[in-house]
Simulated scan of single mutants.
Amino acid sequence: MSQPPYPQQPGVPQGQQYAPTYPYVPQQPTTKPKKPWYKRWWVWVIGVIVLISFISQLGGGGDDAATTQPAGTTTQAVDGVVTEAPVADPTTAEPVTEAPAVGIGGTLTVGEVQYTLLDYTPGVTSLGNEYFNTTPQGQFVIVTLTVKNIGQDAITVIGDMVALRSPDGTEYSASDEAWAYLDDSPLAKDINPGNSLDAKFVFDIPVDAQPTVVEVSEGFWGMNTAEFTLG
């Protein structure tokens, strides 16, 4: 049995059939399939890092075993033979002892000159006699030394052979002018090899100065020095 035709609808030209309109059904988007986890890039990066770390540990293990040595020893190579020598423990090493101080009556050797400190007299207020004398700007200090030539050439006694030094590092030079007022001035006297003489070195220093060191040297050009300790 055939279906009867649809009745003519308003607004539709004569002779054209009305086509019914069905509801619009949107097209569902197609979903992209997910990659398996083992194909992710970060999985491969982590794997490479782990592999490199494992290989480096295998390669370094042999070196650690070869270089391990007992504590307190050091490796030495003599003529191609490797030996282990003990190393001194700084916590148990004996302390370095300083040389004992040398004071009045002691002897020091500097280069080719040997000194013996005989006397140290501070607080001198004048030198000379009633006709020929001088007074200090502060105080005169007289240092008496035996100077001996232990070299092979003659030496000359000069003021620069001796100096005084205070605890704060202040250094005082001998006064060549004050030497002239001594009864027997050793200024510019020569000493032949093997000979010695007693020489008084005069210093003009402040009244409140208290030197603690008598420094002796080889002379004007002498770089080596030694120290007598006062007090």
Rank of each mutant, 00 (worst) to 15 (best):
Q57Y: 13
P13K: 05
G169D: 09
S166G: 01
V102I: 14
N133W: 10
G222C: 01
D204H: 01
D184W: 03
P23V: 02
W41F: 08
T225I: 06
V87K: 08
G80A: 06
E218N: 05
Q152G: 03
T91A: 06
P206F: 00
T109Q: 15
D190W: 04
V214E: 11
V43L: 11
A188R: 13
E215R: 14
S53K: 07
L118W: 00
G11W: 10
P33S: 14
T107E: 12
G151N: 07
L118I: 13
L117D: 05
Y115S: 04
Q8D: 10
T67N: 11
A163Q: 14
E94S: 06
A188L: 13
A85S: 09
T121D: 10
V141D: 03
S185I: 01
F228T: 06
I142C: 00
G111Q: 03
D198Q: 15
P95F: 04
N129A: 02
F54D: 08
V82Q: 15
D160W: 00
N129T: 10
F132D: 14
T107P: 00
F203M: 04
L145N: 11
T212A: 09
Y38S: 03
A209Y: 01
P136E: 06
K35Y: 04
K189C: 00
V50C: 03
V50I: 15
S166H: 04
W37E: 14
A188M: 15
Q76F: 02
A65Y: 13
V157I: 15
W179F: 07
P86R: 14
W179S: 12
G47I: 14
Y181D: 05
